[in-house]
């Protein structure tokens, strides 16, 4: 039997054991957690020493350590302090200026692959809106965006204080669905929402929805939020909705996209920015929710520590290897 098939079989057996035998969630106590962290750090130091001695590790070892650093914090009870950054603070301030009953438009411009970063932002944003009696209009320039919105709405509605409010579809929030056309959809919405969304996500005619009574274009919207993972996304919203129609815009982006959006924050074209998982965690903190953004931050930080450690180890290997090559070449020359 080939080696790889043995690996598949091993994965299958371990998975089945975990699925059928371990039926309760696993949680490490803080003491066990710190012992594990200590052991991982010792292993890193050992790899560093071995590297200096000229014994280099393979890439699989790096993957293994990154995997461990991501997975183990799920089972640990330790938390990480989260500091509020100015970009998240300014978004929260801008939202705080909205009066109850204000109309908020949120565009879901992402799909499931970007959900780990953007979904916690969406859930917290809905929670904030419902808690503060803001009326929410949902749309998407990505086909799967409105479905992501529905998932986030369900999570927000599960919160006890929101469930007590009897939030009603059509009155407190609506999902207008997806519309193809990228930035041209935003352009058309500047004159008429109805022309782009004649029905909502479920086929109800636009005019039959009580929430949109009196909403014809961007001038009737008090604040817009864009959750984006690429094109079309925040940049297009800034270019069309903000700069042409004067919409107040907040943005939540994947970390990859955040550096491209920062200039718009500096120029005041967007009111605030949630960048990646870190932004999601900060937003959860300021709103007062403990969601996946906060929970995942320990894994995120642990993975970053491991990446930095292996960058140092990799550089040590590179420079020492170079030195060794030179000394070997000098020895050969002498011989």
């Amino acid at each position: 039997m080939k080696k790889e098939w043995l690996v598949y079989l091993g994965i299958l057996i371990v998975s089945l054991i975990l699925f059928f035998v371990v039926t309760e969630p696993i949680t490490f106590s803080p003491t066990v957690s710190f012992i594990i962290i200590g052991l991982i750090l010792l292993a890193i130091v050992y790899i560093f020493v071995r590297t200096i001695q000229g014994n280099y590790v393979g890439r699989q070892t790096v993957f293994l350590f990154v995997g461990i650093s991501v997975i183990l914090p799920f089972f640990m009870t330790i938390t990480q302090p989260i500091k509020l950054s100015p970009e998240v603070g300014s978004l929260y301030t801008a939202l705080g200026e909205l009066q109850p009953g204000s109309k908020v438009l949120i565009s879901f411009d992402y799909d499931p692959p970007s959900a780990p970063e953007l979904q916690p932002m969406a859930e917290t944003f809905f929670y904030y809106c419902f808690k503060n009696d803001l009326k929410v209009l949902i749309m998407g320039l990505w086909p799967q965006g409105p479905q992501q919105a529905d998932l986030a709405i369900q999570k927000a509605l599960e919160q006890p204080d929101i469930a007590a409010k009897n939030i009603e579809y059509g009155v407190d929030y609506i999902n207008l669905g997806f519309q193809a056309g990228n930035e041209f959809v935003i352009q058309r919405m500047g004159s008429s929402f109805k022309s782009m969304f004649p029905t909502d996500f479920y086929g109800t005619p636009y005019d039959s929805l009580p929430l949109v009574d009196g909403i014809s274009n961007f001038s009737n919207i008090d604040f817009s939020m864009n959750l984006s993972a690429g094109y079309p996304g925040t940049i297009e919203w800034v270019q069309v909705a903000v700069d042409r129609y004067g919409v107040k815009l907040g943005a939540g982006n994947t970390a990859v996209q955040a550096p491209q959006v920062y200039p718009y924050l500096n120029s005041g074209q967007i009111k605030g920015l949630l960048g990646g998982l870190n932004g999601a965690a900060e937003f959860e903190k300021v709103v007062g929710v403990i969601g996946k953004g906060t929970k995942f931050m320990v894994s995120q930080s642990a993975a970053h520590v491991i990446v930095i450690a292996f960058i140092i180890i990799g550089n040590a290997a590179f420079f020492l290897g170079d030195k060794r090559k030179k000394s070997k070449a000098a020895e050969k020359k002498e011989a």
Partner: peptide, 16 residues
Amino acid sequence: GYTVMSRMSLLIGRMD
């Protein structure tokens, strides 16, 4: 740095 953060987030999502 932001790209690393983003890729790690995706891995965290899958592991979750």
